[in-house]
């Protein structure tokens, strides 16, 4: 009969993992990075399209856009976006692999997470060297 007073409001339910005390894991970090990188690259795409529009428009407009994209700010945005899109690329391939039902064991998933992080840095460096 003691349980009769336990209405849904008074039951002390466990809280879902709290962000402040949540121990970072490779699986969760690599997952949220996929979302951050995928949404973040829109900044670089907008900058790239603006630069293309300027090239299509006039010499003066192109001079402005070219100065921006070749400045330290342009370098920062495009280098960050390059890493971000390579990370998102590898994480996306991992998703396609997951969707086939593979790689979901914790040890394998963690290895794949490291592969995305290390692979994205390697691909970023290779790309920068290739397009110079």
């Amino acid at each position: 009969m003691a349980d009769a007073k336990r209405t849904p409001q008074t039951i002390n339910r466990p809280l879902s993992p709290h962000l402040q005390i949540y121990r970072p894991q490779m699986t969760s970090i690599s997952s949220i990075l996929t979302r951050i990188t995928g949404n973040g690259v829109i900044v670089a795409v907008a900058l790239a399209v603006w630069w293309l529009l300027a090239a299509a428009t006039s010499d003066n407009y192109f001079a402005v856009a070219n100065a921006v994209v070749t400045s330290w700010f342009g370098d920062l945005v495009f280098t960050a976006a390059l890493w971000a899109i390579w990370y998102h690329f590898l994480a996306g391939l991992r998703h396609l692999y997951y969707d086939q039902g593979h790689g979901l064991e914790i040890a394998t998933a963690e290895k794949l997470g490291w592969a995305c992080i290390i692979g994205s840095v390697v691909l970023t460096v290779i790309t920068i060297l290739l397009v110079q």
């Binding site: 090239a55 192109f62 070219n66 070749t70 790309t127 290739l130 397009v131």
Partner: peptide, 13 residues
């Protein structure tokens, strides 16, 4: 596309 765009970025008009 990264190769095309990366090679062209910073080039003259």
């Amino acid at each position: 596309w990264l190769y095309i765009f990366g090679s062209t970025l910073g080039a003259p008009r």
